[in-house]
Amino acid sequence: MSAPIRVLVCDDQVLIRTGLATIVDAQPDLEVVGECADGATAVDLAGRLRPDVVVMDVRMPVLDGIEATRRLAGAGVEHPVRVLVVTTFNLDEYVYEALRAGASGFLLKDAPPERLLHGIRTVASGAALLDPDVTRRLVGEYAERIRPSRTDPADSPLTPRELEVLHLLAEGLSNGEIAAALFISQETVKTFVSRILAKLGLRDRVQAVVYAYRHGLVS
């Protein structure tokens, strides 16, 4: 039997933090190794407790979740920790910055418990997680800020088919949904996604979505 996934929960609201920890700790394959109320403590605890995943709020005192994520998972971090941002999107306009800081994914706080648990397991496995509802609203609500520059598709290293896959990925579609939309197999979709990440020098699907929005490759 494999060791449980070690989870650190960081949220400054006690009821939310306790609720998240209770949901996670009730699973036989998950273990809450620590809780905290601010980003600075999260960084400190992550260094000592070595969690597999940090469930991170964004708006917190002392050190916000964006900077904490950057210190835990950003470029150049020697031993990066996977961060799953759980946020209230309507109140939080910093989701995009959190993803740029290195978060492996995000969920809405009103997501059902099973989606949270799936998200933790997904991120722990090395994959990225994007909440489709939030992904589809990123461009609509923050289009100008998210896309400071445009890249001519002709100048992109991606093929037209790869750009098509990136477009659907950026809209929050799963591999299965992309496969159905393009009438190809899920394995083929996985191959396309791997090629996109390799060509663009990106770590995961989250970074691919950020790249697509930032460079205006999707509308």
Score class of each variant (00 low, 15 high):
A181I: 07
L45D: 13
D38F: 08
F192Q: 15
E187P: 15
R17T: 11
S125F: 06
H167T: 09
T22Q: 10
L166F: 05
V86G: 02
P160K: 00
A181H: 13
F106P: 06
A103L: 00
P51R: 04
N175E: 13
V165H: 04
L84Y: 05
E35M: 08
I120Q: 05
E171V: 02
S174P: 02
F192M: 07
E141H: 13
L108P: 11
V81F: 04
L108D: 14
G140D: 10
A179I: 06
L173N: 05
L117Y: 08
P132R: 00
Y94C: 12
L168V: 03
D131F: 05
A26P: 08
L166K: 08
R71G: 10
G176L: 02
D131M: 08
H79R: 14
P160A: 05
D29K: 06
N90M: 03
R205P: 09
V9D: 09
F183Q: 13
T151R: 15
L116M: 11
P153R: 00
V165I: 01
T18R: 13
P153M: 02
T22D: 15
A37M: 14
P61R: 03
V32A: 10
G34E: 04
D152L: 14
R71D: 01
T22F: 14
I146P: 06
R161G: 10
G65F: 03
R115S: 10
L130A: 15
C36L: 10
V9A: 10
A101G: 02
V7F: 01
T191E: 14
R150W: 06
L202N: 09
P51W: 00
S194V: 00
T87I: 09
Y211R: 01
Y96E: 10
I196L: 06
C36V: 04
F192G: 12
D57K: 11
Q207F: 05
D131R: 03
V9T: 11
P4S: 10
V165T: 13
A111D: 13
G19W: 09
G102A: 06
A3P: 03
A128I: 01
Y213C: 13
D133F: 11
G119V: 01
G47L: 04
Y94E: 13
G176S: 08
